[in-house]
Simulated scan of single mutants.
Amino acid sequence: MFFSKCSQMSPRSAKRCVLLIWIMSVIVSLPHGLFHNTYEFPDDDGKTIVQCLPVHPDAGWWKTYNVYLVIIQYFVPMVILDTAYTMIAVKIWTLSKARIEMDETKMANQKVSFDIKLV
Rank of each mutant, 00 (worst) to 15 (best):
F3N: 10
K5S: 09
S7Y: 08
M9P: 00
P11I: 14
R12P: 03
S13H: 08
C17M: 07
C17S: 11
V18M: 04
W22F: 15
W22Y: 12
W22L: 12
W22R: 10
I23Y: 00
I23W: 03
M24G: 06
V26E: 15
I27D: 01
I27H: 04
I27M: 04
V28G: 02
S29R: 12
S29D: 14
S29N: 13
L30S: 08
L34A: 02
F35K: 08
F35W: 11
Y39T: 01
E40M: 05
D43K: 01
D43N: 10
I49H: 08
V50Q: 01
Q51K: 08
Q51R: 11
P54R: 06
P57V: 14
A59L: 04
G60K: 13
G60L: 14
W61E: 03
K63C: 00
K63Y: 03
T64E: 06
Y65V: 00
Y65H: 00
N66I: 15
V67M: 08
Y68R: 03
I71L: 02
I71V: 14
I72V: 15
I72Q: 09
Y74C: 15
F75W: 09
V76A: 02
P77L: 05
P77V: 09
M78A: 02
M78Y: 09
M78W: 10
L81F: 09
T83S: 11
A84D: 10
A84W: 15
T86G: 04
M87W: 13
M87Y: 07
V90R: 09
K91D: 11
I92V: 15
T94S: 13
L95R: 15
S96V: 07
K97V: 15
D103Y: 03
M107H: 04
M107A: 08
N109D: 11
N109K: 09
Q110E: 09
V112K: 14
S113E: 06
S113D: 01
F114G: 07
I116H: 05
K117H: 12
K117Q: 06
V119G: 10
V119H: 13
